[in-house]
């Protein structure tokens, strides 16, 4: 069996399950209001839509293009858009971290990966049209159900909360989240050893 089909099967099964869930949701309620907080200024609205188009557009580009280099460029815009979105959500520290780690770290890693593994930068991995269309259709179906459920779910919205200061975050890291904080150090250490070992040239 082709390895690709594994993820496929999961996609199908999960969307079937979701479809059933979505149907019941549809039957019971149709008029649940979306949780919209009225107080959002015009600039916030404009920025949101611009960023949304940027993120989704570049993500779609990643899905459609066959060239790995273009995928990396799409990833740049997608990550960057998400970082700006974090600023919009008043998560300033997280926005900066997103820029540094994702755009400055992971993206560079991906580009290195591409350069180390292709004989020429223009190498293309074209997916057959048919396969692209069917997987896309299943994903669309999944999104319709997921979106439906998310749209109608009764979220408790307490209105915009105050932005979290870096001071609070730092205190949280060293009290409530001390264990994950320490654990993150161990994860990074072990991963560093593993990745360095795998990528290292063996001495003969």
């Amino acid at each position: 069996m082709n390895f690709k089909y594994y993820i496929w099967v999961i996609l199908l099964v999960s969307s079937a399950v979701l479809l059933c869930g979505g149907q019941t949701a549809l039957a019971q309620e149709s008029a649940a209001a979306a949780a919209i907080v009225p107080a959002s200024g015009p600039l916030e609205v404009i920025f949101f839509w611009v960023l949304a188009i940027m993120i989704i557009g570049s993500a779609l580009w990643i899905a459609l293009t066959g060239s790995v280099v273009r995928m990396a460029v799409g990833l740049f815009f997608s990550f960057g858009g998400v970082a700006l979105l974090f600023f919009l959500l008043q998560a300033y520290f997280l926005g900066v971290v997103q820029l540094i780690v994702y755009v400055g770290g992971i993206l560079v890693l991906v580009v290195f990966g591409i350069m180390l593994t292709s004989s020429s930068p223009h190498v293309r991995y074209q997916v057959p049209r048919m396969e692209l269309a069917t997987t896309g259709l299943v994903s669309l179906l999944l999104f319709m159900v997921l979106g439906h459920v998310l749209y109608h779910a009764p979220w408790s919205t307490t209105g915009p909360q105050l932005p979290v200061s870096m001071n609070e975050l730092g205190r949280g890291l060293l009290t409530d989240y001390l264990v994950p904080f320490e654990l993150a150090g161990v994860v990074l250490l072990v991963v560093m050893v593993g990745a360095a070992y795998l990528a290292r040239q063996e001495k003969r």
């Binding site: 009225p38 979105l85 979106g147 979220w155």
Partner: peptide, 9 residues
Amino acid sequence: AIGLTHYLL
């Protein structure tokens, strides 16, 4: 108006 639902979607 932008709210939670927009971000979730």
